[in-house]
């Protein structure tokens, strides 16, 4: 009775872990899914930075009036590059840490909750 219960509890989580470790097809598919999700997240956020920051030189070049615009008496490019860029980078980084940990939590849930 007790042994059966232990055995039943073992099956789910332990089996998934074993599948991961032994690289069965199910385990392979799980890991590939996680890697793909994390890479897609990283690429999406690089795109945000690529457009948000990487687009600025092009913008300044093709629309010189943006360069001469002023905010609080300071030229906009100075504010954007000298000040705003840093909190923007930290915000993107914070979002990444948050979302990447959620991806990992989803993966862990799948592995550890057998009765899905």
């Amino acid at each position: 009775m007790v042994l059966a219960e232990v055995a039943r509890r073992r099956t789910g989580a332990e089996r998934t872990r074993a599948e991961l470790a032994q690289q069965t097809q199910v385990g392979e598919a799980l890991v590939r899914g996680l890697v793909r999700a994390q890479l897609a997240l990283a690429l999406r956020l690089s795109l945000v930075v690529g457009i948000g920051l990487g687009g600025l030189p092009l913008l300044f070049a093709i629309a010189p009036e943006v360069g001469t615009a002023k905010l609080f008496g300071i030229n906009l490019p100075w504010l954007l590059l000298g000040v705003a860029a840093f909190p923007f980078l930290v915000a993107v980084g914070w979002a990444y840490v948050h979302l990447a940990e959620r991806n990992e939590q989803d993966f862990t849930d799948v592995v550890q909750r057998p009765e899905r």
Binding site: V49, L53, W78, G93
Partner: peptide, 24 residues
Amino acid sequence: GVDVLWYPVGFAAGYLALLLFVAA
């Protein structure tokens, strides 16, 4: 002047690339 502000921005942004693709 303003064109070389890309140095400090890039020096900091390098850590974002490191975080996104490499750190963990």
